[in-house]
C-alpha cells in the first residue's frame, strides 16, 4: 500500500502499512543548508514556530512533553540525536499509542533532502496522519523560507481526501 500525494513540487508524502501498523513518510528537498534545517528540527524556539511547543529534557534518553499545532499533545523521549543528520524520538513511550518519529537529513547542493517517517500508527487513522504530516512539512518549508506557516487545521482538512484515497490503495 504505497501512494504518492504530490501537493507541493518539492515534498512527496506516502502512506503504507507495515506489520499491521501505519507508516507515514514525507520526503522533500528544502531550500536551506543542513545545519539550518537541523536547527529548525531541534531548537525549541524554532520548533514552536512551525510544529510544536516542546518542554523538557532534550538530551538523548531525556523525556519531554510536546503540544503540536494539530492539538495533539503528549510525552516523548529522545532516542537518537546525531547532529546534523539523524533524529529519532519515541512518542507516548510505553503507551498504547506509541509511535516513532525519525528524521534523516542529507546535504544536497545548496539545499537539504529530508525524510521524516512516523511509524506505528493505527491503520484506521493513517489518512489523517498522512494529511497531518504533509501540513507540518509544508509549514517547515514555509518556516525555513521565512514565511509564516499556514493554519494547520485548514490545510489538514484540504489534504485529508487525497490521503484517504492513498490509504485505500
Amino acid at each position: 500500500m504505497t501512494q504518492e500525494t504530490q501537493a507541493d513540487a518539492s515534498i512527496t508524502g506516502t502512506v503504507r502499512s507495515v506489520h499491521g501498523r501505519g507508516v507515514v513518510r514525507m520526503e522533500g528537498r528544502y531550500a536551506t543548508d543542513i545545519d539550518d534545517l537541523w536547527s529548525a528540527l531541534t531548537d525549541v524556539h524554532r520548533l514552536a514556530r512551525w510544529i510544536a511547543d516542546v518542554d523538557g529534557d532534550l538530551r538523548v534518553g531525556g523525556t519531554f512533553r510536546a503540544t503540536f499545532t494539530s492539538g495533539w499533545e503528549g510525552p516523548g523521549r529522545v532516542d537518537i540525536c546525531e547532529a546534523p543528520q539523524h533524529l529519532l524520538v519515541t512518542m507516548t513511550p510505553g503507551g498504547d499509542e506509541e509511535t516513532v518519529i525519525e528524521a534523516v537529513l542529507v546535504a544536497d547542493g545548496d539545499g537539504t533532502m529530508l525524510v521524516i517517517e512516523e511509524r506505528g500508527l493505527p491503520l484506521e487513522e493513517l489518512a489523517g496522519h498522512g494529511a497531518g504530516w504533509q501540513a507540518h512539512v509544508e509549514d517547515l518549508a514555509a518556516h525555513v523560507a521565512e514565511r509564516e506557516p499556514t493554519d494547520w487545521h485548514t490545510r489538514w482538512v484540504e489534504l485529508t481526501p487525497s490521503y484517504e484515497e492513498a490509504a485505500r490503495q
Binding site: 503540536f68 494539530s70 492539538g71 495533539w72 499533545e73 487513522e125 489518512a127 489523517g128 496522519h129 494529511a131 497531518g132 487545521h153 489538514w156
Partner: peptide, 8 residues
C-alpha cells in the same frame, strides 16, 4: 480525537 487533530 481524529488522527493528530485534537479539539476540546
Amino acid at each position: 480525537k481524529d488522527a493528530q487533530f485534537r479539539v476540546y
